[in-house]
């Protein structure tokens, strides 16, 4: 099947600083991807390059099989909602929606206006008078109503409260179920979205360090707490991605070969066990004190 996005050795450097280095991956059509990582890891830069808003320094880039730069065929299928999107000062929300309706061929105007009601947006207010949260809501509405075959959301909910975020997740799931498309969600609020993601990519310091189905990651790591000796014995042969000692006690997060038998073995060793959420896993993988390459699972 034709991939939605295919990049190989994608690199972006500014002078001597590499914002993105040698990143390769493919995204299949009609899946929800999570592009995760810390702020400044290079997620936004990658999305800018996919959407031809920024030019790669080197590497191959294909969107729906073609180079996206100035390619009407490709660009007409992309909707990129980014945190720092600028709007003309004099535009009102209604103007922005009107123009967006002229740009995306699958645009559903009725749906857009129903979302305006749900997010309680003042249609006639000028964009520059909107709060951070309202700006985010406008972006979310464009992203959903455009129904673009490739929709990218970069930190789409800054300034939104829990209710509005939950509304976004609900509408995203519903609309995606009815109109499947490739969706890329970039965020550092991983716990909130982890259930929505079919596939997870983790970017750290400009590199892709994890590229895995999110279901494969669930239950793959385990945090154990107990006597140092028991922890060491349990962790033998596994990859330890976190260790902290408190006197004779030790807390450690291990990865690799975790299953129900292993959990039982840990308990038999007198260890307390806790499941590791995707967010915790990624925090461990990207916390900077380990110079790891691609993660082995």
């Amino acid at each position: 099947m034709q991939s939605a996005v295919a990049v190989s050795n994608l690199t972006k450097t500014y002078g001597k600083v590499a914002a993105v280095s040698e990143v390769s991956f493919t995204m299949e059509p009609n899946k929800i991807y999570g592009l995760l990582g810390r702020n400044g890891a290079g997620k936004t830069t990658i999305m800018h390059m996919i959407t031809a808003q920024l030019f790669p320094t080197s590497g191959e880039l294909r969107v729906f099989g073609e180079a996206p730069y100035e390619n009407a065929n490709v660009l007409s299928q992309i909707c990129f909602i980014k945190e720092g999107q600028k709007y003309p000062d004099l535009f009102r929300i209604s103007d922005v929606l009107d123009v967006a309706g002229g740009c995306f061929k699958n645009w559903d105007n009725e749906y857009a206006y129903s979302l305006v009601e749900e997010f309680r947006l003042p249609l006639k207010r000028r964009m520059k008078k909107l709060s951070r949260g309202m700006l985010s809501s406008v972006g979310i509405i464009i992203g959903l109503a455009s129904r673009a075959p490739l929709t990218l959301f970069d930190e789409p909910y800054l300034g939104l409260d829990a209710v509005a975020r939950s509304l976004f997740y609900n509408r995203l799931i519903e609309d995606y179920a009815e109109h499947p498309r490739t969706i890329v969600l970039s965020t550092h609020l991983i716990d909130e979205v982890s259930q929505l993601l079919e596939h997870v990519m983790v970017i750290d310091k400009g590199r892709l360090i994890l590229n895995e189905e999110s279901e494969m990651l669930r239950g793959r790591a385990l945090t154990v707490i107990g006597s140092a000796a028991a922890v060491e014995s349990f962790a033998a042969g596994k990859e330890m991605i976190e260790r902290e000692a408190f006197g004779s006690l030790m807390k450690s997060t291990v990865m690799g070969g975790i299953d129900e038998d292993e959990i039982r073995r840990a308990r038999a060793l007198g260890l307390e066990t806790t499941a590791v959420s995707l967010q915790q896993l990624i925090v461990h993988l990207t916390n900077g004190n380990s110079e790891r390459g691609a993660v082995r699972l």
Partner: peptide, 16 residues
């Protein structure tokens, strides 16, 4: 200054 970033943000080609 006012319209170019907005247009590019809506996937409008630079040429267009």
């Amino acid at each position: 200054h006012q319209t170019f970033p907005f247009a590019i943000g809506l996937s409008i080609r630079r040429t267009d």
